[in-house]
Amino acid sequence: MHPEKYFSLNEIALMSICGALIFVMKVVFKVPVHIPGHSGIFWVIPMIVGISIVRKPGTGTYIGLISGLLGSFFGLGALHVFDIFSYLTIGVVADICGVVFAYRFDSLAVGVITGALSNVVKMVVHYGVQILLGVPQYFIILGIGLSSVTYIVFGGLGGLISVYIVRRLTRAGVIGEKNG
């Protein structure tokens, strides 16, 4: 007799695709707007949609781990190998939001809050790594002011878009009350 696994093979495949999609979106949607946190509008979507479909604690962490490993391996982010920490952390925060808000990612408030919090945490981890690497703290404090506002706005917008996607998937029967 085999013990039942926490994540099914289908769930692992879906979470892996969502993690890879975050990485791909970061690569494909390189918009040269030079506004901090603007990529949050893109990467928040597969994170929230993946958590909405699987609905189990650890889903966001797994998705964040996959996207962080890809980002670290290919070294496309500013922090290269340290990108794994920021993506793992955003997954943990999205997981916490999922549990706290009972996976109600069809709610505008929950989607926006989750997107904004996840994107801000990514900023905090980036600045934390920079402090550990020896970047002068006054440069970091200067950058946090404007950055925190734009990270909140773009993360919230990504969360807002995910709400509409989750609602459509729910109406289509892809997301239901029961875990698949």
Rank of each mutant, 00 (worst) to 15 (best):
Y6N: 06
F7N: 11
L9C: 14
N10L: 15
N10C: 11
E11V: 00
I12Y: 11
A13S: 13
A13P: 08
A13V: 15
A13F: 14
M15L: 12
S16R: 07
I17N: 13
C18F: 10
C18V: 09
C18K: 07
V24Q: 06
V24W: 02
M25R: 11
M25V: 14
M25C: 14
K26V: 12
V27H: 11
V28P: 03
F29G: 13
K30D: 15
P36F: 05
P36W: 08
G37K: 02
S39H: 14
G40M: 09
F42G: 07
W43F: 11
V44R: 06
V44Y: 03
P46Y: 08
M47G: 07
M47Y: 00
M47K: 08
M47H: 00
M47I: 02
M47R: 01
I48S: 00
V49D: 03
V49W: 03
I51W: 06
S52T: 00
S52Q: 03
I53M: 14
V54H: 07
K56P: 07
P57D: 07
T59P: 01
T59M: 02
T59D: 08
G60A: 04
T61M: 13
Y62R: 00
Y62K: 03
I63F: 01
I63R: 09
L65I: 15
L65Q: 01
I66L: 03
L69T: 09
L69Q: 02
L70R: 06
G71P: 02
G71L: 10
F73G: 09
F73R: 02
F73Y: 08
F73D: 02
F74H: 04
F74G: 04
L76H: 12
G77V: 04
L79V: 12
D83L: 00
S86Q: 05
Y87C: 05
Y87I: 09
Y87H: 14
T89P: 00
I90C: 13
I90D: 02
I90K: 09
G91S: 05
D95A: 09
D95V: 12
D95M: 08
I96T: 11
G98S: 08
V99T: 13
V99Q: 07
V99P: 06
V100P: 04
F101V: 06
